[in-house]
């Protein structure tokens, strides 16, 4: 019997009697990162990387949770468990399991290019590698972060010159922290929407060095700095916080903004293709770097990516999880 199997509750390790990112309440849950489609409430015990712990507590309330730094192993019912940088968001991890010479790596969500904030992705050698495939189509090839940041800055300045307030919609965990330097480095003040303010504070308390930001509050509306940008979670209401006489221009920051039709579907004023997931070359290089004999593809364009891997001589199969939907469905971390 393989060390990891798919059960109705998600990926299950029978020897160790624990789950990885289960989608219902279980006894013991190992969590790759704190996005809501990976970290669900209701389990008895949680285990995650050190920086994921405060976010997990913030999001799931009072839970029993142990945390580990990257690379430090623990043993559970004889199974060696360790967390390794996935480069997806702060605290995100790939989970490595080893038992009687059999090694597995569950990548969770990951990206291979460094974002200057989260610990960069490290390939981990294994026999069985479970990879995501959110952007597993060759049309997805990310531009360097610096290039996207500079486009975002230019767009913000252009909006301000038209007397509009630039608003960047970014997911609260990950993207909202990642894009701060795009503006902070140019001394552009940043307002954070209340819905992402707490995540920001939790990271500060955990000792993460983040640029200075201002809270977006109703009290600020009258004294709103005209040279500032606003960062808010997608679809959030801003009316209460902004000066009444100003128009807003909204930009979405997401890997889905690559394709014109999808940018248009969002009906925003602009879209920037900035993703916390691996692009096509990133997925291929990650698969190669693990040296794994068996590849399991989940979460995205799994049919296409699996077929391609098999044609290229890998042994790959699809892993159907409860998360799979239409690839274009907006997920929290895209």
């Amino acid at each position: 019997m393989p060390l990891l199997q798919l059960s109705p509750q998600g990926l299950y390790c029978a020897v160790g009697d624990f789950f990885i990112d289960p989608w219902g309440p279980v006894n013991k849950a190992l969590i790759t990162h704190a996005h809501s489609d990976h970290a669900r409430g209701g389990s008895q015990h949680y285990m995650c990387q050190d920086l994921t712990k405060p976010i997990l507590q913030l999001r799931l309330g009072k839970i029993a949770v142990d945390s580990l730094p990257y690379g430090k192993p623990v043993w559970h019912n004889g199974v060696k468990i360790s967390f390794h940088p996935a480069g997806h968001v702060l605290g995100s991890a790939q989970i490595r399991l080893e038992y009687q010479g059999e090694t597995w790596v569950v990548s969770g969500d990951y990206k291979t290019a460094a974002d200057g904030l989260s610990t960069p992705f490290e390939p981990v050698a294994c026999q069985h590698f479970i990879t995501e495939s959110t952007f597993g189509l060759p049309i997805y090839q990310w531009a360097p972060q610096a290039e996207v940041f500079s486009q975002m800055r230019n767009w913000a300045l252009a909006q301000q010159s038209k007397d509009r307030i630039p608003v960047f919609e970014a997911y609260g965990l990950g993207k909202a922290q990642r894009i701060l330097p795009a503006f902070a480095q140019a001394q552009i003040p940043i307002y954070l929407h209340p819905r992402i303010w707490h995540t920001h504070q939790a990271f500060l308390e955990a000792g993460v060095d983040l640029p200075t930001v201002l809270p977006l509050t109703a009290a600020h509306a009258k004294a709103f700095l005209p040279e500032a940008v606003v960062i808010a979670p997608p679809g959030s209401s801003l009316q209460a916080y902004l000066p009444k006489n100003k128009t807003v221009s909204t930009a979405m920051c997401s890997g889905w903004m690559t394709v014109n039709a999808q940018r248009k579907q969002q009906d925003k004023d602009a879209g920037f293709a900035l993703s916390d997931h691996a692009d096509w070359p990133g997925l291929l290089s990650a698969v190669k770097a693990t040296g794994a004999e068996n590849i399991y593809v989940t979460h995205g364009f799994q049919t296409i990516f699996t077929r391609y891997l098999n044609e290229q001589g890998w042994r790959a199969q699809e892993l159907k999880t409860a998360f799979q939907g239409d690839a274009a469905t907006e997920e929290e971390s895209a």
């Binding site: 189509l137 060759p138 049309i139 997805y140 090839q141 531009a143 360097p144 394709v259 014109n260 039709a261």
Partner: peptide
């Protein structure tokens, strides 16, 4: 597959050409 997903041939091929970076 990429064309079917993107819906525009000219755009699909522009996206497929490896980026210089």
């Amino acid at each position: 597959e990429a064309y079917q997903f993107t819906g525009d041939l000219a755009e699909t091929i522009a996206l497929l050409i490896p980026r210089k970076s």
